[in-house]
């Protein structure tokens, strides 16, 4: 937001808003929430938005602290799978194989070597009041989850999958469909964690082909057949485990 909509004198938020330090989204939210409590406010929400790097990398410590304290905050991770504001650098939420400007594919290394950090379960492991994954490709699901988070008397975390046309090498008008396809292909999932239980909100019988999703994006264009097989197998293992452990009934 600071890059375009929050440069004096052009200030885009109609409500009270502030930009935090990069690692400090959660801790600043905690301070705001504590002050709201001290002031005796009743009708308010304290909501913060950070990117994948700001959440899973540099801001993870502060986020962990805020959840641990059970501060009444809504934390939204806007995950576009790389540091996009600085121009597409790898974060710990960049998926395996993806090309970024710091994981350039070449003869020796084919893009990102690590797999996407499992933030949702890391957050759930805090025994958080409410956590969910979402995608902008499933808008109603996202809206429902934000509504649910707003009713929680404690911390809530929503991990939103959101494509970046420039960073992923897609056309701007494909954004929504890619965000839907990632869920349909099983490379992202819609789930919730509440009352100590995981729930898969969407459990498709069949996935759309992983290859179709990957080939639409120039960041995956260099991948070999074996890479795609590896990604597909990792997906299947993850779903096998989620279905076995999460959706028992």
């Amino acid at each position: 937001m600071s890059a375009v909509g929050f440069i004096y004198p052009q200030l885009c938020f109609s409500n009270n808003a502030i930009i935090s330090t990069f690692p400090g989204t959660a801790s600043m939210l905690s301070g705001v929430a504590a002050a709201a409590k001290a002031k005796g406010y009743k009708d308010y929400h304290v909501l913060g938005i950070a990117g994948d790097g700001g959440t899973a990398d540099i801001g993870l410590q502060a986020l962990s602290g805020a959840i641990d304290r059970r501060d009444k905050i809504i934390y939204i991770c806007y995950d576009n799978e790389a540091y996009m504001n600085t121009g597409i650098q790898k974060s710990s939420l960049t998926p395996f194989g993806a090309k970024t400007t710091t994981t350039p594919p070449g003869k020796n290394i084919r893009g990102t070597l690590t797999v996407k950090k499992n933030m949702f379960e890391i957050i759930a492991a805090h025994n958080i009041d409410y956590a969910a994954t979402a995608s902008i490709g499933y808008v109603q699901d996202l809206i429902n989850k934000i509504q649910k988070a707003s009713l929680v008397d404690g911390p809530s975390y929503i991990h939103v999958f959101a494509p970046c046309p420039t960073g992923w090498g897609i056309k701007t008008d494909e954004t929504f469909e890619i965000a839907k396809e990632v869920v349909d292909s099983g490379l992202w999932y819609l789930a919730e964690y509440e009352n100590g239980e995981f729930t898969l909100n969407r459990n498709p019988r069949e996935f759309t082909p992983v290859e179709n999703y990957l080939k639409k994006q120039s960041r995956f264009r260099h991948l070999l057949e074996e890479d795609i097989i590896e990604i597909t197998e990792a997906r299947d293992r993850k779903w096998e485990r989620m279905r076995r452990q999460w959706n028992k009934n």
Binding site: S20, G24, S27, S30, G31, A35, A38, S64
Partner: peptide
């Protein structure tokens, strides 16, 4: 009588103070 916060680092200590101070307390 104060909102006493056990932060997880000094960075968060001051970051949280800024959040609270931004609220005018």
């Amino acid at each position: 009588v104060s909102e006493f916060m056990h932060v997880e680092s000094e960075h968060s200590a001051l970051s949280a103070c800024m959040g609270a101070s931004a609220m005018g307390v």
